[in-house]
Amino acid sequence: MDLHLKDKVVVVTGAAGLKGSIGETIIQALANEGAIPVIVCRNDRGFGYEKELQDKGIDALFVKTDLTDPVQVAAAAKKIGEKYGRIDALINNIGVNDGVGLDASIDDFMGSLKLNLVSFFAMTKFCLPYIKKVQGTILNIGSKVSLTGQGATSGYAASKGGVLGLTREWAVDLIKDHIRVNAIIIAESWTPAYDTWIKTLENGEEKLKAIVDKIPLENRMTTPQEIADTCLFTISKKASHTTGQFITVDGGYVHLDRSLLSK
């Protein structure tokens, strides 16, 4: 299916993660559709991804940015706007399940909010003038933790709950500007970060099997590519009458009846 994303300027935050991470996978999927991927992230890996894409003849840009710093975020949006004159889609993808729980300091909790929630507000605020120029779209990447809780991660849970609240609020705010705002909710996805976490556990393989066995559809994790595909469809004109929605890409992990898991 042609999603008509060719030459569309799509900004993705937190997209300089390891190969196979959700952000990096989204960037590669955008490139395959002929879009112009813009990576906004603090990791220097982004320079390599920019060069890799440019060497393939793809117009790509990396803007090194600490997303917890509003001054840097404003500068990044300005740089993108000056280069391209518009932003067709913004994908707020940054997120770190940082384990800031009830035993953490207030400063740590505020730091978690800055990275996982305030960065969404700042990036959207400063990119909005360029999004409005072309009646673009905004897509927020959420987490099942906002709906189910997880334990020992108050900062991340509060942030991702806030992301869903902002999604609905912005969808209402921007109706008059014909700007769609949606959220993708992810549950268990096999990423390099997930692999690293499993390897820190004494009973990692046992824990992994217990998680996978609880995913109703095919008893497997969602792949980053499946998430990227849903993101691209949602920002495309193929989803032109979809706004204010929470789209759960999780193999039924959050919503389906646990009786499905009986063996």
Rank of each mutant, 00 (worst) to 15 (best):
C41L: 00
G142F: 05
Q245N: 12
Q135R: 14
H255K: 06
I94W: 01
G34T: 06
G34I: 03
G204D: 06
T243Q: 04
D173A: 15
Y253G: 00
P70F: 08
V73Q: 07
L90H: 03
I91Q: 06
K207N: 11
G23F: 08
L18R: 15
V71P: 00
K78T: 13
G85P: 09
E205V: 06
L166T: 04
L201S: 04
E50G: 11
L90V: 12
N32E: 15
G23V: 07
I80D: 02
G136C: 10
K78S: 13
A152W: 11
T248H: 07
H241T: 12
P216A: 10
G149I: 12
V254W: 05
N140T: 10
A193K: 12
T223F: 08
A89E: 07
R42P: 05
A104N: 08
G20T: 08
A31R: 05
I27E: 05
I80G: 05
N140I: 09
G136R: 03
P216Y: 09
K51Q: 15
D69W: 01
V73P: 06
R220M: 12
A104S: 15
L139M: 09
E24F: 11
D229Q: 11
A152K: 14
V10C: 13
F62V: 05
I215Q: 05
V12Y: 06
A76V: 10
Q150A: 14
A75G: 08
A29P: 00
I235K: 05
T242H: 03
Y156Q: 02
E188Y: 11
D213P: 02
T13R: 02
K144I: 02
I87M: 12
G95E: 04
Y49L: 14
G81Y: 07
I58H: 09
L3E: 09
Q28L: 12
K64E: 12
H4T: 01
D2S: 13
Y156P: 03
N116G: 07
L115D: 05
K238E: 07
I179W: 02
I185V: 15
V100K: 01
I36P: 01
T223N: 09
K238G: 02
K6M: 04
